[in-house]
Design a binder for these strands. Structure first.
Lengths: 214, 214
DNA sequence: GTCTATACAGAGATAGAC
DNA sequence: GTCTATCTCTGTATAGAC
């Protein structure tokens, strides 16, 4: 194992467990069991090391879930997979890394770049799944898959942060999402008649003066 | 205006604009135009000052929206209000403060306490609104209002963080939520027959072996 | 590539005069 | 309550030997 990899691993795990506040050249080097000066030799600055570590974590995580996502055949299954993803990531810490990097992005351009990259990678995969699954449901045509994918991805970040602060509260939140998943599953089974009924109502609602731009 | 209040204001605004990384006894004192040592005289530690500032911000923000929330008479209106809340808070920065504090809570007990308090205050208000509005919709009885309120609140945090990193992407996400709001409005209008149909399907789905505990 | 040593800035926090 | 001065620690980063 190269020093570079040791540093990347140490950074990723520190970021997930202690948050950005616990990440420093010294703490990283200690966990990686290498000399502190090597952080700067290999990555220039601490921020750039964090950026590299997050990019690698995201690439790995997204690649893992890509295979799972293409097997999904309904919105309900997608929600179930999302639930499992949260559980796995709570332990593995990839989403926690994203959350930390997004929070730290306010003052640090390298972190901001990492955060944008991470969101883009996840949103892209979710969007592909949605584009495949929404046709045939009442949501098709009514909701922009691109925007929805981003909303879902961002929502996950928030849930993960909440989980770090109040695991029990986050548990009830996830339970509610399970229940919502069941509801969506039921909607999926309603068939084309109901779908058309819902859609015509959506169209009417879209014309109300409530609608304003961003 | 007392020194205490100057410090609280300065902390809240710094937290919202520069994030936790930009918050220090010196930076706070500079923005408040008071002596640095007064941070410790009045609040003991920087973390405790941040905690106090966030608690105050949350109390103020929640009080503002409490009146608005009791006027809401449908789930669709609730979603519209949520959309407006996001827009307002993007500028005012209350939710950004929460996001920063949640991210920093990993290593700091005072921040963790502030984060839990903030989530609890917001979730409570949303839950009350949901309990009032869900009866009569297909979601009634199918989704735990307590859990849903927390999921929604946490989701907001994620969206706000995302907005700080990629405002355009966050814009499309919010657009999708607008569209979802329209869809829910349509569902609300479907009436008791459809409600019962959906509910019976939900009950069936809830018995499948997919169901596991947290 | 790796190590030691060190410069230097900024952080939290306190003592003591006023 | 407020101010000056200061201590100490931690963090980033670099120089230079190996």
């Amino acid at each position: 194992m190269t020093t570079r990899d040791k540093l990347l691993d140490a950074t990723a795990s520190l970021l997930a467990t202690d948050g950005l506040a616990g990440v420093s050249a010294r703490s990283i080097a200690a966990r990686a069991e290498v000399n502190q000066a090597l952080v700067f030799y290999h990555f220039g600055t601490v921020s750039e090391l964090v950026e590299a570590a997050v990019r690698r974590s995201v690439d790995l995580a997204v690649a893992t879930y890509r295979d799972r996502l293409v097997d999904v055949s309904s919105v309900a299954e997608l929600l179930t997979l999302g639930r499992e993803l949260h559980r796995t990531e709570r332990d593995r810490g990839n989403v926690a890394q994203m959350a930390q990097v997004m929070a730290g992005a306010q003052r640090d351009e390298a972190l901001a770049a990492a955060a944008r990259y991470a969101m883009q990678q996840w949103s892209r995969e979710v969007e592909l799944a949605l584009r495949r699954l929404l046709p045939g449901t009442p949501l098709d045509g009514a909701v922009d898959p691109r925007g929805l994918a981003r909303a879902v991805s961002a929502g996950f970040i928030g849930l993960q942060l909440y989980d770090g602060v109040d695991p029990r509260g986050a548990g009830t939140a996830l339970g509610a999402l399970d229940e919502l998943a069941a509801l969506v599953a039921a909607l999926e089974g309603l068939g084309p008649v109901a779908t058309r009924a819902v859609r015509s109502r959506v169209r009417k609602a879209a014309v109300t003066p409530e609608r304003r731009k961003s």
